[in-house]
Write a protein that binds this DNA or RNA. Structure first.
Lengths: 228, 228
DNA sequence: TGACATTTGTCCGTATGTATA
DNA sequence: CTATACATACGGACAAATGTC
């Protein structure tokens, strides 16, 4: 796929700051010659970069690179994709079980009651400091071979690479909660601290709900970008 | 613009539930004939609908309509765009002033210290119940005629329609806070309640920061959709 | 299992419209 | 006013995935 190659190459150049912020990208005609393709292909690559917040273009003027804050938080990234290379991410598995769906779970997943579900609870530590407490449910029939070992690793990566499922969307529901005694102990924070609770619904293509997660993040703020 | 017409028409049909969820959209060839256009134009309209979460397509298979939760919260909408028609939104202006930027504000807006800024604080009530407390800063030079009256209305609408500026992105930073005495009184909630504090940065095209807002929302959760 | 038609995805060339400098 | 650069639109060809017989 030619346009993906162009897209990847331009993205890399942008991330390496080869283009200074707001500087122009020498024009579509030039890029056609540089990559030896048609304008259609170049525009498709630019479209993708635009959609992900890397660039914007203006008729009659040119193509401009956006500052990093425009694109860094726009797409769904896993915790392991977010953190830098030199920090240590550890997932402490606190619970792992195959359970049967109760009414609430069945409704969330749009499955019948008593459907077999994978359940796990884990504490994610960065450089040995607790950061996220996660409770996750996944339908067993979609992930027949999912093991404790998988639950300790990068689960979204598992879904994509091992199972070959295409992840489509993640719907996040954010609320504020106050840490009770139990939570404050596991998260090593004072009781009464205000934290963010995030409910995730990870969907595969064709609207299949693959994962329902409730997580509590300590000491953190979330950043989102909406496009008008 | 032909593709916008196709886009609008299909969007309207989707929102009116003319297509049942996950049902197919009769195919590109069919749509070409229906709207009397080329496949390029149809595909451009479909691309836009895809980006906004209304549909997804699969090679060899077809075009499918997504359930409402996929698209309803994906784009930047103002409070007045979100609420239903029959509820009463009232903005109580608590403060309005022209101030000079201190160091922190100057840094946020990337302007020099003492630049003239519009400042206002307002309480947004829905059916007479306090919902959002907002503190907003906007550079005076961008909005020369901005008045108290404008601050009582729909400000994003003012930016777009009255000033003719194009809004590009909104970057939200969400944190959890606990209501102190003063906040709890204005928001009519018990002291100590956990709430969401959202910092907005509304950018125009070319990365110009038009508005910086800090808002506190009571009794609410925020929903976001990330695309993988 | 294999062959086939269908449907979306990719790519090219070309022409014209429109905002900007 | 003019040249430039992006935006829109058309038509055609082939590739790749899917569903069906």
């Amino acid at each position: 796929m030619k346009y993906i190659k162009v897209y990847n190459d331009l993205k890399q150049k942008i991330q390496q700051n080869i283009y200074t912020t707001s500087s122009s990208l020498q024009g579509e005609e030039y890029l056609c010659e540089l990559y030896d393709t048609s304008r259609t292909t170049i525009r498709k690559a630019l479209e993708k970069l635009k959609h992900e917040g890397y660039i914007h273009s203006k008729q009659g003027s040119g193509i401009f690179v956006n500052p990093p804050e425009f694109y860094e938080e726009k797409n769904l990234r896993t915790l392991s994709e977010k953190i830098e290379k030199n920090v240590n991410l550890e997932n402490v598995l606190m619970n792992f079980n195959i359970i049967e769906a109760d009414q609430k779970l069945a409704e969330i997943f749009n499955l019948s009651i008593n459907t077999k579900m994978i359940f796990y609870k884990r504490l994610r530590k960065i450089n040995n400091i607790p950061k996220v407490l996660e409770v996750t449910y996944m339908p067993k029939y979609l992930f027949k071979n999912f093991s404790e070992e998988n639950a300790k690793g990068a689960v979204l990566r598992y879904i994509e690479k091992e199972c070959n499922y295409g992840i489509s969307h993640d719907i996040k529901n954010v609320t504020a909660i106050i840490l009770d005694k139990e939570l404050s102990e596991t998260l090593e924070m004072p009781e009464g601290t205000a934290t963010l609770q995030i409910e995730h619904k990870v969907y595969l293509i064709k609207s299949i709900l693959a994962q329902y997660t409730k997580e509590i993040q300590v000491n953190s703020n979330i950043r989102f970008v909406s496009v008008r």
